[in-house]
Design a binder for these strands. Structure first.
Length: 877
RNA sequence: GGGUUGUUAGCUCAGUUGGUUUAGAGCAUUACCUUGACAGGGUAGGGGUCACUGGUUCGAUUCCAGUACAACCCA
């Protein structure tokens, strides 16, 4: 067989993905096996794959493939999210490029455009995931706005409303006066900008004096309904019960006290404008203040301001400054650095604005979800997020679930008469309710006006683990009973609250059970400068190009190598490169093994027998270690164990020991054992690198049609021989020391050497001697009872070794080496003696610690003794 | 402003129930080797007073407190 010296990933990837799909290996149906379920964090339907997805989905695929190979019924449900804000923004931008303004379209017309866009771009991202090797059950692909998911969302809204948990309330929103729409917090960019702080005086009613207020917004003075100070502030205590006159407006407003006010800031006196600042609004609520909205939707001054009507807010600010100056109420102006929020879309300065929104009461609803995490019903990985979670859940706010958008699940509320409303699953039920509620049987559907808003995207995502198996519409169906709760959720920490916490809440509310056992929080993918990867910065590589360059397996390994849970991943090309190199290493090891011809007549060399025995123990130990790391979700670490197992132990040691001479055949026993080890290694690596392992596994021995590595069972291990493994570790040291001697003495590898061991046979583990002999190209290994002249020497543990050099010994160099070693051991002895000379240590330390220190001391002393003797001998030469 | 977490080798990270031969890995780096699996390889090195300052202790990189810096979340 002719195998190329470089692994070509492209062909293998498309070949085996098709093979897996054609054989239906990704499919899952309920049966009597243990289920292993993951629901995908649905990517935006019109999005394209970015590095975050790569990381996230690689981890999911590793877990799902591993579970499948453990004999579990693995089910990974894929799907996409309608992502109302992001998608609507994209559609608006696309229409704008075509010269169409959103405001010129009806809701229905806009939605037609949005669906067209969704159908055109939707699913691209899922196709990209296939390139990565994702073993999702594609027949189960979902969309958060498909029929069943939408139906579920509406049902849940109605249910929560009927339980009294959803209400309408006033809230401050980020208003973009240019786009004339509310924008989400995520769409507001804050920048430090220079502005001014105005000191304005307010006349005290019934007194001669004034009080002074500092403000950055003089134009909103027209909307003031109180002036406020901290109740502990001595300077203002005398003003209790007094009134002051708002400048320009000449309105009498009360002087009030609230602990919100910071006495240190400005004059310690705050003007209260409930309509235009969230804190003022809250103070207003506490003190029953009226609220005067001085702005129109487009940012001009409204009629209720009583002045400057129709003038733009920035112009009004200048006019207000002049007017205050003219009336002598402006005392001074200071420079001030302020954080200004601007709309991501229009760059217009955001205006806080009061509006009516829908809310979900969270306090009681979230209780079981808080307990679930605190009681370790749901495990967060890494656990440091537990504190954060608790902190947030204990201080949970009501959830504003309405959005002023078209793209999304429209809120199932209908208005009639004078802003009365009903909530129902559809308009005919709404009509019946409205008739009942109003007592007016003459109402028709035409009298009902549907709510214009849609629901927050998270209001559908929070049901995802349930709706993935249609558990809202059909709570008793076979799928939901079998697959729920799911096993693990893989997601980014920044949506711990937006999404994860709310899924747990919904899980308990609608299934009476947690939605998943474990949550693995990945890090953010950043570039080398620690910047978040983003399209606008242009610092994000195209994942598909990476796959083409390094292979899917290489990219998967690259993503995982440097991404411990919860830590950011600083991405650079060297990572997938390392992954690709690993794939090539595996490939070449395979080439080597396949190049051998097995011969029944050859007897197995002793060294090979030992190597096989040792390799199998190392394999068992690694399997144990891998199981342990997986149980702690330390996936990077598991990969590193496998990486070193294959590269160092298998390729570096095992294959080097059993390797027959060039173009000579290998004995059958070792060959078969090696194929078996290779088979196990492919199984262990498969979850991480599915393609190359399948390719090699199929070529390793003849396979039947329809067989696949991905459906085979992972090797298991219970016990391993610790002594054998430890013995080999010390043998590695000996070999390494001999190699160093060769290097220092410039002895070519081909030249045979003798090894002398200053010890008796019973004292030393001779088991691995044939291995040393083979790897170091020795003619003999002998045990001696006296030190050897004219030989290079070294120590491993407390045993001294000699290699006769036939006059090649460089005494000076040897002495230098010994002096260095002596220095080290003497230094070490000092640290040990420091402890042993300390009486309090000797009397207080536990016996085992004391014994250990004593052993350290005697070992060091014996080493120093033999080094000194050796030095004496050398100098006497 | 409030909170959470972190600071260990050039980089990314492990580790420590406080003592395990004067701290480990991968990558990077240095020297040498290499026509017989792999130059995307091999061998051998170098590199860290475990952020700082105190405290507890026979003993602190590990526990506690404070300081500095950084990241994230909330306002």
């Amino acid at each position: 067989m002719d195998i190329p010296s470089k692994y070509e990933p492209g062909l293998a990837e498309s070949k085996w993905y098709k093979y897996w799909m054609d054989n239906g290996f990704f499919k899952s149906m309920p049966d009597d096996r243990e289920p292993y379920t993951i629901v995908i964090p649905p990517p935006n339907v019109t999005g394209v794959l970015h590095m975050g997805h790569m990381l996230n989905n690689t981890i999911q695929d590793v877990l799902v493939r591993r579970a499948r190979m453990q004999g579990k019924n693995a089910c990974w449900v894929p799907g996409t999210d309608h992502a109302s804000i992001a998608t609507e923004a994209k559609v608006v931008a696309k229409l704008k490029a075509e010269g169409i303004e959103k405001k010129d379209l009806t809701r229905e017309e806009f939605l037609d455009h949005a669906w067209e866009w969704t159908n055109k771009h939707g699913g691209i991202i899922l196709e990209q995931l296939k390139r990565l090797g994702a073993s999702c059950d594609w027949d189960r692909t979902l969309f958060t706005m498909d029929e069943k998911r939408s139906e579920s969302v509406i049902k849940v809204f109605v249910d929560l409303f009927n339980k009294g948990l959803i209400y309408r309330g006033i809230r401050m929103v980020n208003w973009d006066p240019e786009a004339m729409t509310a924008v989400s917090d995520e769409e507001v960019n804050y920048t430090d900008e220079k502005s001014k702080l105005y000191y304005v005086r307010y006349k005290i009613v019934g007194e001669d004096g004034y009080i002074m207020v500092a403000t950055t917004r003089p134009e909103t003075i027209l909307g003031d309904t109180a002036v406020c100070a901290n109740p502990d502030d001595e300077r203002y205590k005398h003003l209790k019960g007094k009134k002051v006159i708002v400048p320009m407006a000449n309105r009498e407003v009360p002087f009030i006290f609230d602990s919100y006010v910071d006495p240190e800031f400005g004059t310690g006196c705050l003007k209260i404008t409930p309509a235009h600042d969230i804190n003022d609004y809250e103070i207003g609520m506490r003190h029953n203040l009226p609220s005067i909205d001085v702005f129109n939707e487009d940012g001009t001054i409204s009629s209720s301001a009583g002045m400057f009507e129709g003038i733009d807010r920035f112009k009004a600010k200048e006019l207000a400054e002049k007017e205050l100056q003219r009336t002598g109420n402006l005392v001074k102006v200071e420079k001030y650095d302020n954080k200004i929020g601007r709309s991501e879309r229009t760059n217009a300065v955001i205006e806080p604005r009061l509006s009516v929104q829908w809310f979900l009461k969270m306090k009681e609803l979230s209780k079981p979800a808080l307990d679930a995490v605190l009681d370790n019903e749901v495990h967060l990985h890494p656990s440091k997020f537990k504190n954060l979670y608790r902190h947030w859940m204990e201080d949970v706010h009501d959830w504003c679930i309405s959005r002023q958008l078209y793209w999304g699940h429209q809120i199932p509320a209908w208005y009639y008469n004078n802003n009365e409303f009903v909530v129902a699953e559809n308009i005919s039920e709404a009509l019946e309710l409205a008739k009942k509620k109003s007592g007016n049987d003459a109402l028709t559907q035409n009298d009902l006006r549907p709510d214009e808003d849609v629901l927050d995207t998270w209001f559908s995502s929070w049901l995802w683990p349930i709706t993935s198996f249609d558990g809202i519409n059909d709570p008793g169906n076979a799928d939901i009973k079998y697959y729920y709760p799911t096993n693990v959720l893989i997601t980014a920490p920044e949506i711990l609250f937006f999404w994860v916490a709310r899924m747990i809440i919904a899980g308990y509310e609608y299934r009476g059970q947690k939605p998943f056992n474990d949550v693995y929080l990945t890090g953010l993918v950043r570039d080398q400068m620690r910047r978040k990867m983003s399209k606008s910065l242009g610092n994000s590589p195209d994942p598909i190009e990476l796959i083409e360059k390094y292979g899917a397996d290489g990219v998967r390994v690259g993503m995982l190598l440097c991404s411990p849970a919860g830590n950011d991943l600083l991405f650079e090309d060297s990572l997938p490169e390392q992954g690709r190199n690993f794939a090539n290493k595996i490939w070449n090891a395979f080439r080597l093994v396949k190049s051998w011809e097995a011969d029944d007549k050859i007897k197995q060399p002793e060294s090979s027998a030992i190597a096989v025995e040792w390799m199998n123990e190392v394999l068992k130990k690694s399997i144990t270690d891998i199981d342990l790391t997986f149980s702690k979700f330390r996936i990077s670490e598991a990969l590193m164990i496998i990486y070193r197992l294959f590269w160092d132990e298998f390729s570096g040691w095992y294959l080097e020991i059993i390797k027959p001479e060039y173009q000579k055949p290998i004995d059958r026993v070792t060959y078969e054992a090696t194929l078996s080890v290779f088979d196990k290694l492919m199984k262990l690596i498969h979850p991480f690198m599915p393609f190359i392992t399948e390719e090699i596994w199929q070529l390793l021995i003849e396979r039947k049609k329809g067989e696949s590595l991905m459906m085979s069972r992972l090797p298991e291990a219970k016990n391993f021989n610790k002594n054998l493994i430890a013995g080999f570790v010390s043998i590695k040291e000996t070999i390494s020391a001999i190699r160093t001697v060769r290097k220092e003495k410039d002895l070519p590898n081909k030249q045979k050497l003798d090894l002398l061991i200053l010890s008796d046979k019973d004292h030393i583990d001779a088991h691995f001697m044939p291995v040393i002999s083979k790897l170091c190209n020795l003619t003999s290994i002998k045990f001696i009872s006296e030190k050897q002249d004219g030989a290079a020497s070294f120590m491993v543990g407390t045993t001294e070794y000699f290699i006769p050099l036939e006059g090649k010994l460089d005494v000076e160099a040897e002495l230098l080496k010994i002096r260095e070693e002596l220095e080290y051991h003497k230094g070490f002895l000092v640290t040990v003696m420091k402890k042993l000379d300390n009486e309090r240590f000797v009397s207080n330390a536990p016996a085992n610690v004391l014994d250990l220190e004593k052993k350290k001391k005697s070992d060091a002393e014996s080493k120093i003794r033999s080094l000194e003797e050796r030095m004496k001998e050398l100098t006497s030469l």
